[in-house]
Amino acid sequence: MSRKMSEVFVLAVLLLAGCGAPTAGPASTYTSVPDKPSSPVKLNVLDVAGNLQLTQGMIDEFVTAHPDVVSEVNYSKATAPDMPGKLKAEQNAGRSQTHLVLTGTDGLAAVIGQGLAAPLLPDHEARFVGLKDNYLPPAAAMQDLSQGQGIVVTYYPAGPLLEYDAAKVPNPPNTADELLAWAKANPGKFQYAVPANSGPGRTLLMGLPYILGDSDPKDPENGWAKTWAYLAELGQYVDDYPSGTTETMKNLADGSANLVATTTGWDINPRVLGTVPESARVTTPAGFHWVTDAHYAVVPKGVSQDVMAANLALIKSMLDPKQQAKAYDKGYFYPGPASEVHPERWTGAYEVQVAARSDDS
C-alpha cells in the first residue's frame, strides 16, 4: 500500500464532507497535562465509525484496571456527517461534553478541516514512544494522514471489493466496463451506500481512479475525469444509495440488490452474523489496488486537562499488543489491529478464503 493511495482517502473525503461535564474548566492548550487526572473522570465517548465493535472491550478493561483515572464511560453513537456539527455547537457554547471521538477517515477529515480537534502529536509524543515503529506499515502511513489530530487505533486494507449473490449472478463483472454493462442490464440491482457514511462506499470511490487509470488518483478535483464520468453513467442504473452499509447487506440478502460494494470486513462480518446468504461471493475488478482505511481516536478541543490526561492514558493502553488483539473481533474491520499482534500475515489468508469461495461458485 503506497502512501499516495492512502492520502487520497482524506483528500477526497475533505471534498465530500463538507453526558458529564469536564472536571475542570475547558482548556485551549494542553502544554502541561498531568500523567493522570487529579480525580477520576467520567468520559463521554462518541463512536461515528462502528469502532466500538473493535475497541469497547479495550476501553472497558482499562476502566476496570484504572478506576483512579476513569470512573465511568458513557458511550454514544452518531453518523460521521452529524459529528462535526455536534462538536462545533459544544465548543461554541464553551462546553465540550464529548470527550473522545472514534472516527474513520471521513470524520477525521471533517475535524481537521474545521479545526475541531485538540492536537495530540507531536504535543504528547512522549506518551507514545515508538508509536510509528509499532504500527503495521500501512497503519503508520494512515497515522501520517492524521496531521497529529488523531491516533490510529485500528486498521484494515479495505478494498474495493464487489460482493454478489452467486445464485443470482453466476457470471459477476470482473472489470469496470463489465460492471457498467451489468448495471445497465440489471437496473437497480447494484448498490453502494452513501460514501460520506460508508466505508465500502468510500473505498469504491477511492479505488475507481486506479481501476480506471485516471490522470491523478490523488486529486479528486482535477485528476478524476474518468471517475466522475464513470459514476455519472453508472448512476443512471442505480436506483438507491442507502444511508449505511448495513442496509446494502440486508438488501443483498432479500434480493433487492444482487451486487454491492464491500470491503474485507464487510465481506466477513455479515457472514458471521448470518446477514448475507451463504451463496454470497466476492470479486475484485481488474486494475484493483488495496485502498486502506483506519479508525482514529480524536480528542475534541475544549476538554479539561484532567479529561485530556485520561484520554492519553486510555489511548496508550488501547495500543498495547494485548489490547490490539481484541480488534480481531468477528471480522468487522478485518483484520483490525493496527500493530502486529500475530505472526501470520492476514493477506495470504484472506486471499485464500476468497479464492476458495470463488471456486465453490
Rank of each mutant, 00 (worst) to 15 (best):
P337L: 07
T263S: 12
L314D: 06
S71L: 03
D133L: 00
Q323C: 07
S28E: 14
P209N: 05
A286R: 11
Y296W: 00
G148S: 02
P242E: 00
G57W: 05
P187Y: 04
V48S: 12
H66N: 13
K330L: 14
P343R: 14
A225H: 08
K168D: 05
G244F: 14
N258E: 12
M83D: 04
K77V: 14
D82G: 12
L204I: 00
G104W: 04
S146G: 06
L108P: 01
D165N: 11
A49R: 03
V69K: 10
N74F: 06
S6E: 09
L16Y: 08
S317F: 10
P209C: 09
E72K: 14
V303G: 02
A286D: 10
S279V: 03
V169F: 03
M142S: 10
G207D: 01
A158S: 15
L136N: 00
F62G: 02
L273V: 02
L11K: 15
T227Q: 11
P270V: 06
I315V: 09
L43F: 09
D239Q: 07
M249V: 03
R202Y: 07
L231Y: 08
P22E: 02
Q305A: 13
V291W: 00
A49Q: 01
A93D: 14
D240P: 01
A232T: 11
A117R: 00
S304D: 06
A193F: 02
N186H: 15
A225M: 00
D214P: 02
N174D: 04
N258T: 09
T283E: 12
P119H: 02
Y350W: 13
W182H: 08
S38T: 15
V299H: 01
Q147G: 01
W224R: 05
A253G: 04
N174Y: 06
K218M: 13
P81C: 08
E7K: 10
P67G: 04
Y210R: 06
